[in-house]
């Protein structure tokens, strides 16, 4: 497993065809704010076979949410842990796993995330006995974050999301699927989060059949907010797939960090995280 919140480091060795990066936003650099995004990739064998998990989180920033960089990192770690245990416990079919995730993931994750937050707070602010003894929303709020994950098996993807951020599946033909459609009712920079009241009911989940090859891509809103339109965002995704096919996955991801920095500097100003999984299809290649 690998996850990080800071700039890319060369020592992290990622499993084949997965990649992620977390770029500190231009406005964060300007104002001295830390990077408040976090991301992680995990790939391994579970009862279901080879599973690839991508997670990204976007800490809220702003002075009210001053510990949100930690909130995002803890959310990513907790999600990875929770998803792998769900895979192990609900392993008879993907339908059963999907049902379990839809019904139980949100509140199981929220509780574990809160416990992790509490641990972090007690380690870093042991003197704040009053709040630690009676943890309230005021404590958790400081760690506020969004969260977005995808679990990819051979032939399907199960995903979940609270708050903004984008999950896309881009095929070689150029069509871009959105397993979780954009929330039309949330406009003007408004989002849900792990600290929203009644947050467990604000989650959205999806199951999506994969017909490979395709690129699964999770990103925080710093990316799509810096693009001129949904169409431009699609252009970016299609150019990723085209380059992977023309050159290679490894060659393509080398140029992605620079592009993400340009999106932040010339567009959103925000932190930008991107996690990728290129699902090439061995079966289909054999047929050819």
């Amino acid at each position: 497993m690998s996850d990080r919140t800071g700039p890319a480091s060369a020592s992290v060795r990622l499993p084949a065809h997965t990649w992620f990066d977390v770029r500190r936003g231009s406005s964060h650099v300007r104002t001295g704010l830390p990077c408040q995004d976090a991301a992680a990739v995990w790939r391994g064998r579970l009862p279901q076979g080879q599973v690839t998990i991508l997670v990204v989180a976007d800490g809220h920033g702003d002075s009210k949410y001053d510990l949100s960089e930690h909130g995002a990192r803890l959310a990513v770690q907790t999600a990875l842990h929770c998803l792998r245990s769900f895979c192990r416990r609900f392993n008879t079919s993907s339908s059963l796993l999907y049902d379990a995730i839809r019904h139980d993931f949100a509140h199981r994750l929220t509780r574990q995330w809160r416990q992790a937050v509490l641990r972090h707070y007690s380690e870093n602010f042991p003197q704040d006995v009053e709040l630690l003894n009676r943890p309230s929303i005021n404590l958790y709020r400081r760690y506020g974050t969004t969260l977005l994950f995808s679990l990819a098996f051979d032939d399907c993807l199960i995903g979940g999301q609270i708050g903004d951020g984008d999950m896309t599946v881009t095929h070689t033909g150029g069509d871009v699927g959105r397993p979780i459609p954009a929330a039309e009712r949330l406009i003007a920079n408004e989002t849900h989060s792990l600290i929203s009241a009644d947050s467990i009911r604000l989650w959205r989940f999806c199951r999506w059949t994969l017909h490979e090859p395709c690129l699964i891509c999770l990103s925080t809103d710093g990316l799509s907010n810096g693009m001129a339109s949904d169409e431009s965002f699609g252009d970016f995704l299609r150019s990723l797939v085209r380059n992977i096919e023309q050159y290679s996955f490894a060659e393509t991801v080398k140029v992605v960090p620079g592009f993400l920095d340009r999106v932040s500097a010339g567009g959103s100003g925000d932190d930008v995280s991107l996690a990728l999984f290129w699902q090439a299809d061995p079966r289909r290649k054999k047929k050819k």
Binding site: G226, F236, R238
Partner: peptide
Amino acid sequence: PVLEGEIT
């Protein structure tokens, strides 16, 4: 590789 997509 060159990436595309209009940034604004």
